[in-house]
Design a protein around this nucleic acid. Structure first.
Lengths: 252, 252
DNA sequence: GCACATCTGGAACAACATTCCATGCTGGAA
DNA sequence: TTCCAGCATGGAATGTTGTTCCAGATGTGC
């Protein structure tokens, strides 16, 4: 607790909204959602609550800013078609729109994997102000790729919404997996964790859960990322299937 | 505040886990997520904290129980193919699996619409214990319909996951809409709310948000439920498109 | 060198989840 | 009936949280 060097540090590393957000992200990553408290923040930034409250209105606004910052970085990475830190000289010469969508989706997927708290926060932020700054960000990144498909403009909104919603739901669930896999077995491979889940599902009531028991074994070998992309491809296939036909099918 | 009749009521309406969960749901519905406090619970149940803690371990467990109860009711309704309170005598004679899936999805959709806090809680519960009691419930309801499609067994898990994930993401987002529409304009129609959002999107930076600005106008007339089902149909179309082909397409 | 708005941090406060414990109640045994 | 064991209860007390208040420090205009 460096209490004596504060005055000389004052303007050397001045407090700013960005520094607060940065510290909050680190706290969330290391200590989890319950680890982000104003007291921990003041200690980490060697300051007092008043200083923080001068830059952010309250905890909700801080969480919103944190979520927005991480999402912004995620879709920025995703926009370069999914390869992490690709050299910006030739940004994917003839990447298909499908690959672009996979890239953005994977960017969000990996962001949630890196920051497990992001799943909950995304849901919370979308509930609090659904049309805030985070929704347009994802909407824009995916929508730009949708526009590159041969989808009629009247369907842009619906199609993009479907993709965004799938990404949100899937990434959230998969982030939860990796989070508890990490918590349950820090060093052990996730195979052990998946095996536990699979066994638990196999022991469900046969009358109530026949289907879940039947697919329980498929959990064991599965790869989160592959399955996530398989879902994306499912939606993409649905898009091309329903948008390419001439006027409309008589009955589904 | 009936403080005097407590002793005679003691065993008349005994405290139970179910009564606590029921009261918690009502509190969440009327006062929002922040309205569910142990103090409010004790007042509503005319008891003390110790009595509640005798039945539930802590707030997290209470929230898990509450979420599970609401989800269980939702998929039970959805399983009867989407029509609310249909007479149980003839439960949908020749309903297609597609309609079954739409029914279960709509059941969850409407549950989140009725209980706006459910979206956040679902995300939180899935993050805390992803393979708890709520995931198998949704998985089973949708999976039983997937099995009725002509999908090969090897794809059951992937296909069902994709559907569940879309439902979670879409229902969460749409619940957020109706929630803030209600909060913003209690009596006014949601057209006014959608108009506000649309205008906000039209005023975004043209360089950063060209697509979002382009589709902003499509927000105005759109119906949450229709769009939700359109997304479901998109995934269903993708399923039939990719699963009906004989062995496998050479390249996507 | 002086005043001003900007910025800081410590102390104080209300609300919260949770724990503790003395007391009440109920169903069965004497 | 009377008693007792143990399930069940509710009020008081505790520690932590988000948030507010305010006296003072800091750097910038004169």
């Amino acid at each position: 607790m460096a209490t004596r060097t504060r005055r000389s540090q004052r303007r050397t590393e001045a407090l700013s909204r960005e520094r607060i957000v940065e510290a909050a992200v680190e706290l969330l990553d290391t200590a989890g959602e319950s680890g982000l408290t104003f007291r921990a923040l003041t200690e980490r930034l060697a300051t007092g609550p008043g200083a923080i409250y001068w830059h952010v209105a309250n905890k909700d606004e801080l969480l919103a800013a944190v979520t927005d910052a991480v999402v912004a970085a995620a879709v920025a990475v995703g926009r370069t078609a999914g390869t992490r830190q690709s050299p910006p000289e030739k940004p994917e010469p003839q990447a298909s729109p499908q690959d672009g969508i996979r890239g953005v989706a994977l960017g969000l997927f990996e962001a949630i994997e890196r920051h497990p708290w992001l799943a909950t926060q995304l849901a919370a932020q979308l509930s609090r102000s659904p049309w805030g700054t985070v929704t347009p960000r994802m909407f824009e990144s995916i929508g730009q790729q949708v526009r590159a498909l041969d989808v009629p403009e009247s369907s842009w909104f619906t199609v993009t919404s479907a993709l965004v919603h799938y990404v949100l739901g899937a990434a959230g669930q998969n982030a939860a997996n990796s989070a508890s896999a990490r918590a349950l077995a820090p060093g052990v491979d996730r195979a052990r964790f998946l095996d536990t889940v699979s066994t638990a599902w196999e022991e469900l009531d046969p009358d109530e859960y026949p289907f879940t028991r039947a697919v329980a074994d498929q959990i064991r070998g599965h790869d989160d990322r592959e399955q996530f992309l398989a879902g994306i491809d499912l939606v993409l296939a649905g898009i091309t299937a329903t948008q390419r036909r001439e006027p409309r099918p008589g009955q589904e």
